[in-house]
Computed example of a mutant assay.
Amino acid sequence: MTTRIPLVPASFFGIVLGLAGLANDWRAAHLAWGLPAAVGEAIFALAALAWLVIVALYALKWLVAPQVARDEFGHAVQCCFVGLAGVATLLIAQGAQAFSRPAAVVLFVLGVAFTFGFGIWRTGHLWRGDRDPATTTPVLYLPLVAGGFVTATVAATLGYPQWGQLAFGCAFFAWLAIESVLLHRLYTAAPMTPALRPTLGIQLAPPAVGATAYLAVTGGQSDMLAHMLVGYALVQALILLRMARWIAQQPFGASYWAFTFGATALAGAAIRLSMVPGETAMAALAPFLFGAANLLVIGIAAGTLWLFCAGRLLPKPGPAAQSATR
C-alpha cells in the first residue's frame, strides 16, 4: 500500500499571510464601520488552521524528503519563501494577542528568531554575488523587508513600539536597497519567464505593509510619510493591474497568493487612516480598497480550493520525492 505525504512548498505560507491580512482588515473594519467582529475572528481562525497544517507538513517534508527540502532551501528563488514561515508565525502571534498574551509573546519570539535568523543568513549568502539576474525577483523582499515590517507591527501591537521602530528601520532601508536592484533588472534584463511573473504580486507588499508598520509604531498618526507609503502602494497596485494579462500567461496556481498580503495590507492601512479625524482621502478610498481585498482573497482562495479538489494544487514530486513518500 502506498501512502503519499504532501510535499508542501514554503511558498504555501503565503496562504497564511493572505488570510491573516484579511482578518486584520475585518478587525479594522469593525472598529471603523461597525462591521461584524465575528467575520474577522472566523477568518483568523482559518488562518491559524492553515498555519498549523502548513507548518506541520513543511516540517514533515524535512523528515520524509530531506533532499527535496534542501533543494528548495538552496534554490535561487524558492529559498526566499522559507522566510515566510517566520512571517506567518508573527501574524498568528498578532491575531492570538486578543485571546492569550502569553501565547502571542511565545509565538512572537519564535517568529522573530526564525525571521531574522534566516534573513541574515540568506542575505549574507546573496552578498557574495555571482547571481543570475534572471533569478532577481520580488521574492528578495521576503526575508528582511516583509519580516522587518511585520515584526515592527506585531511588536507595537504587543506593547514594544521602540523595538518595533528598530525593525521598521531594518525593513525600510533594506526595501529601498533591494528595490533599486530589482527595478534595474526589470527595466534592463530579459522579461521574466511566465512561471516567475506571479512573484510580481509581492511588489505591492513593501509600501503597503510598511504603511501598516509605520502606523503601528507611531500610534496611528496620519502624516506625510504615511500618505507617501500608501500613495506608492496605490501606484504599484495600478501597475500590476495594467500588467495583469501579461502575468496571467502563467496558469493560476498557489503562487497567486503573492498578491494577497500587499492588497490586504493596503486596505488595512487605508482603513486605519480613515479613522483619523479630518482624513478625507483615506476615508474615500478605504471602502473600495477593502472591497477589492475581499474579492481578491476570496477569488484566489476559491481557485486554490478548486485546484486542491482537482488534485492539481501541489507540484508533482520527482523520483527522489516519490521514493521518500512511499
Rank of each mutant, 00 (worst) to 15 (best):
A301W: 06
P194M: 04
T193C: 03
W246S: 15
G318P: 01
L305Q: 08
T137L: 04
V230D: 00
V230L: 14
L49R: 07
A23H: 00
A213G: 10
G262M: 12
R242H: 14
T188P: 02
F308V: 07
V297L: 03
D71W: 08
F252W: 08
F44L: 15
V276I: 09
F13R: 04
A286V: 01
N294F: 09
Y160C: 07
Q203L: 15
A270G: 03
A42F: 06
L234F: 05
L285F: 05
F99W: 12
M275E: 02
L273K: 00
F13Y: 15
V106S: 07
V145K: 02
S11T: 12
P315N: 06
A76C: 02
Y58S: 11
A216V: 08
R27W: 09
Q250R: 14
Q322S: 11
G219M: 07
L144F: 09
L266W: 01
H227S: 09
R70V: 07
D25T: 13
A177P: 00
L314G: 05
P207N: 05
Q97M: 11
V53C: 12
P161V: 13
N294Q: 11
A47Q: 01
A45P: 02
L140Y: 12
A48W: 08
T2R: 15
H184D: 11
E279T: 02
L7Q: 08
F13W: 09
A50F: 14
L215K: 03
C309T: 11
L313T: 13
P36Q: 04
Q203F: 12
G18K: 07
G210S: 11
T157C: 04
M192F: 13
H227W: 11
T115C: 11
G201Y: 08
R122E: 03
F290Q: 00
T89L: 08
G159N: 11
T304Q: 13
W163N: 04
V217M: 12
L296A: 03
R27F: 10
T115Y: 06
G303M: 12
T199C: 10
C309N: 10
F12M: 14
L196M: 11
Y187N: 14
E279M: 05
S100Y: 05
N294I: 14
A156C: 13
A98D: 06
S100P: 03
V68P: 01
L182F: 08
F173K: 10
V181D: 07
T264R: 01
C170R: 03
V154E: 07
G21V: 12
V139I: 10
P6A: 15
S274L: 01
G117A: 06
G40W: 00
I120A: 15
G40L: 00
G219H: 06
L229G: 02
